[in-house]
Nucleic acid binder design. Sequence first.
RNA 1: GGAGGCAUAGCUCAGCUGGUUAGAGUGCCUGCUUCACACGCAGGAGGUCACUGGUUCGAUUCCAGUUGUCUCCACCA
Length: 886
Amino acid sequence: MPSLLDKAYDPNRVEDRIYDFWLKGNYFSARPNPDKKPYTIVMPPPNITGQLHMGHALDITQQDALIRYRRMQGYEALYLPGTDHASIATEAKIVEAMREEGLTKEDIGREAFLERAWAWRDTYGTRIVEQQYKMGASADWSRARFTLDEGCSRAVVRFFVDLYEKGLIYRGERLVNWCPHCNTSISDIEVEFEEHAGHFYKVRYPLKDEEGYLEIATTRPETMLGDSGIAVHPEDKRYAHLVGKTAILPLVGRELPIVADNYVDKDFGTGAVKMTPAHDPGDYEVGLRHNLEQINILNPDGTINEAGGKYAGLDRYEARKQIVADLEAEGYLIKIEPHTHNVGGCQRCGTVIEPMLSTQWFVRMEPLAAPAIKAVREGDIKFVPERFDAIYFHWMENIRDWCISRQLWWGHRIPAYYCDHCGETVVSAEAPVRCPKCGHDHLTQDPDTLDTWFSSGLWPFSTLGWPDETPEMDYFYPTNTLCTGSDIIFFWVARMIVSGYACTDKAPFDTVFVHGMLRDALGRKMSKSLGNGIDPLEVIDKYGADALRFSLATGNAPGNDMRFYWDKVEAGRNFANKVWNASRFIMMNLGKAEIPETIDVSELTGADKWILSRSNDLVKEVTDNLESFELGIALQKVYDFIWEEFCDWYIEMVKPRLYSDEDETKSAALWTLKHVLLVSLKLLHPFMPFISDEIYMTLKEMSGDEGASSIMISEWPKFRTEWVFAKDAESIGLIKDAVSKIRNIRSEMNVPPSKKVNVYVVSESEKIRRIFTDSSIFFAVLGHANQVIVQTDKSGIADDAVSAIIPGALLFIPFAELVDIDKEIERLTREKERLEGELKRVNGMLSNPNFISKAPQAKLDEERKKQEKYNDMMKQVLERLEQLIQ
RNA sequence: GGAGGCAUAGCUCAGCUGGUUAGAGUGCCUGCUUCACACGCAGGAGGUCACUGGUUCGAUUCCAGUUGUCUCCACCA
């Protein structure tokens, strides 16, 4: 129980207890419920490689805000959590850990290795969940899944077998990206290119049967061991006479046919290209067209194999040195030039990858991509912000087959079996007992595992029970919003859409809500190597999860990158404290007072109606913003409302009524305070769930509502047409304006707050006089006035009283001391100049016939009203100036 | 080479379908132990909304180009 005596809010004393309360209340659980509409977000499963980072914190902040919003709106809101086995990433970590013990995978064998991996999963998987608790994630933990658990594995096998049977998965020898460090193939998108300062080696390739040589340029001289041809452009006059002839590979002596192919760029390098079909994607294609020999020269670990002759056994870079030295010694090397070019590295370990000929499993993507492209094209799936669909289309429309087999142990084993006797391939969910072709009963399962994204691509439905027809699939699928970073649109989002249509014939979700990258305060990517990552737990420890969530939810437009700032977290912490203290103030005043549930509008004062009206507007605005995924704007509005309008204005206005014993509107004030606070807390809850519930529950208990349920499942406020009080809003606007003017004058004249003065309000308008008379109680307090005297003319007001102009009225503050007339004239002159500027603009607009004839009526009315207002104020300024100058 | 984002106050950023006195947080200056909050209150300074054109009655907002910057895709040896 919080103490009203705590002046500062301490999240550490609240958050864990509140989370526990939620867990005990079973508030996160969602189940098929025919009386409600479902709303589902599947959590992007964090890798079990380590712990949560800021990117995850951002994910959770957004997803949890959306889920909490929908839950309060009455949806059966399912936030489905889980973790990803992250095949290659985790395996790399484990291998690394083992190396410190002096062990390799091969030393301990597959089974023991997998045992270690599962132990790893238990350790890190648990830690991640604890971190998600800390963030306040309202996920249904009873449904937590793991990509390698039994159900997900069944889905993976089913998907694989289905695709195979449809002819969309095939096995074959192709050129793939090979990581010599991870010792596995990887897919095209797992290769990251980086600019390297390398060299261009120019080498002479002698011609057979005639004098002379061809000049060949290469960045990877060692690959010449696998050369099996030379290509030139068919229209290149320099080489036309050589097409069909033969060159000799230096050092090796192999005969190389010279072929003509459009692939070659005449203007790059020397225009003659050595062809290494087994180690270069472009050469591979040319090789197929011209029937060039494919000579694999590499071992899986990146050393030269026996095809490399005397270089066999050397590491690829060692071989490069040797070959260059030998070329030079034998007079083949023409020169070495510096050359920067892009080199592909392994996404996980950074090792330079080698294109290598290898037998692997592939998914034929083109037919699968078709419905996925159509879905986005036709709006069945929407990207927010929209611009990301262009990236999606570009990739999907140029999609290439996906290499899915990995020479790793930690992952889903490929459900393919090879007959030991006849070599027949059997793809099947169950291990076959005998070969369907020859009947032999010894079959060996493919040792490889699947790309980790093959299983995460099924996440939206494998987690709901697919391939079984479960009630969850029926009710929660298709899911609604998929929130993720822009960096994994290809890896994950595209694959989920593809497999969603392939498996369920439906879109896996209707909206993809994309956020940018989270960077450090200097705008750099947060990364381990830079050591600039910030641990969300550290932030939570210092400032609380609400403050962290605040900092991640606000001040950022959807899809844009954002920087992490401690200052911003501090702002969130300060806001939490503000909310805490405002609530504390309200609760202290509520005390044991009996506040009715509802109140008749006639009992409310203008100020009450104003704040009620404003909170009502806020409900609409925040709801609209959330509907369009403008989370940052939504939270900003709640922040501004609570801090400025509610605390700085309304609470201050209401104080005199609360402190008075005989004020008849006191209970109306208390009712309004309580009501507006409740609405504010509800609107705040999706973003700052802990503090909002802590206060909500305390309020409930104070009201004698023992055993009340969490704000989490309270009803999201609705806009109420009967709470639109335009007139009161206008009146309070005028009062606020007047108060600001008075404060400004006092400040400029260095009048200490302790010094009270009288304020005269002079207006010919009865309406305005009434507004000030009605509000004189709080007007006096906010303006530090002794007395507020409202009258129709200036009679009785000292000539040297300081004045301020507001629309429709003049304010006078007579000071006992002599007023500096010059300073007063200066002040009024500034006001005059400001009004002149405004009038110039308005008059210009309204005297423009084009504006009059073309602008919409509403705009015309608006500007005319302004013109009237400014004219009125200008008249008063001039009068007053004239009076002073005399 | 192709595509896209960003460029607004000292700093970090909002500003939705064109019309606002261009905002917030933080920082800065001045006052304030005002009985919820100094993690606070009040007042204030600070912006030719990158540049050049175009569309429009009207452009920070839409379009084109330029410059700077970041990202993604491709990866020509």
